[in-house]
């Protein structure tokens, strides 16, 4: 049975490995997009002008309130419609289909960003006001305070939450299999269909996800230790 997992023409090992690679690629890109969107959204919520604040609130409310699977469907069909319409404006009349990869990254990133925004907003608000006042009183300007004081201190509060967002993002990539992107979940599904060994392949997929999450948890813990320098832990 284990030769089903071997690497080569007869086994599914290479497909699974490629799938795992695709899963990681989608997850990392979506997470980076999410972090960017999260920072911008948090900034808009905390100190943007009213229209931007309103936009940011709508984004986080809608995207967090709708199942991620639906976000993917909506973006996949809505996105092709939109791009088709724009192509039509430039005289292109054919049917447009967006790449599953692009839609997958964009939609998972969109979901990731909505959660990251809330984590980052909470972290920024958790920084004691006195820390920023001390910087202002020394004549530091806004961007310098952001870079040297606010960001490092907020990171300390944000990291545990951002670690959760990463795990969620990684797992949300499984949903992209519905648009036939060949990531780990999709490969396991295809393999179990053609070999009639669903338990074996889903178990292997589960183990691969577990390895990735366990390794990344270790990474986040190391980052947290670094960000927490100078802080006495309550439970040390």
């Amino acid at each position: 049975m284990l030769d089903l997992l071997s690497y080569g023409a007869t086994g599914w090992g290479d497909e699974l490995l490629q799938g795992a690679g695709m899963t990681l690629l989608v997850a990392v890109l979506a997470y980076l997009i999410g972090l960017g969107a999260g920072c911008l959204t948090a900034a808009a919520k905390l100190s943007g002008p009213l229209p931007l604040r309103w936009l940011a609130a709508t984004y986080t409310t809608v995207v967090r309130g709708v199942p991620a699977l639906l976000v993917i469907w909506l973006l996949f069909y809505g996105g092709s419609g939109l791009v088709g319409w724009m192509a039509g404006l430039f005289g292109y009349g054919g049917r447009v289909e967006l790449s599953a990869f692009a839609v997958g990254v964009a939609s998972v990133g969109l979901v990731s960003g909505a959660y990251a925004a809330e984590v980052i907003r909470g972290a920024v608000q958790a920084v004691p006001k006195g820390q920023l006042e001390a910087a202002r009183a020394l004549g530091m300007h806004r961007l310098l305070i952001l870079r040297r004081i606010l960001a490092p201190q907020a990171l300390r509060y944000a990291l545990p939450g951002l670690g959760n967002v990463w795990q969620m993002t990684l797992k949300d990539t499984t949903l992209v299999s519905v648009v036939s992107l060949a990531e780990l979940m999709r490969q396991a599904y295809v393999a179990s269909g053609s070999t009639r060994q669903p338990f074996l392949f889903y178990l292997v997929a589960a183990l691969v996800y577990l390895v990735i999450t366990t390794l990344s948890e270790t990474g986040f813990r190391a980052l947290s230790r670094r960000a927490d320098r100078g802080v006495r832990r309550a439970t040390a």
Binding site: G130, Q131, A134, G139, I149, Q153, R156, R229, G230
Partner: peptide
């Protein structure tokens, strides 16, 4: 102006990191 006007706070406000 703030560069010329130092301030010391009740709660010290040293940067903890």
């Amino acid at each position: 102006i703030r560069q010329r006007c130092g301030m010391v706070f009740q709660s010290f406000n040293l940067w903890t990191h």
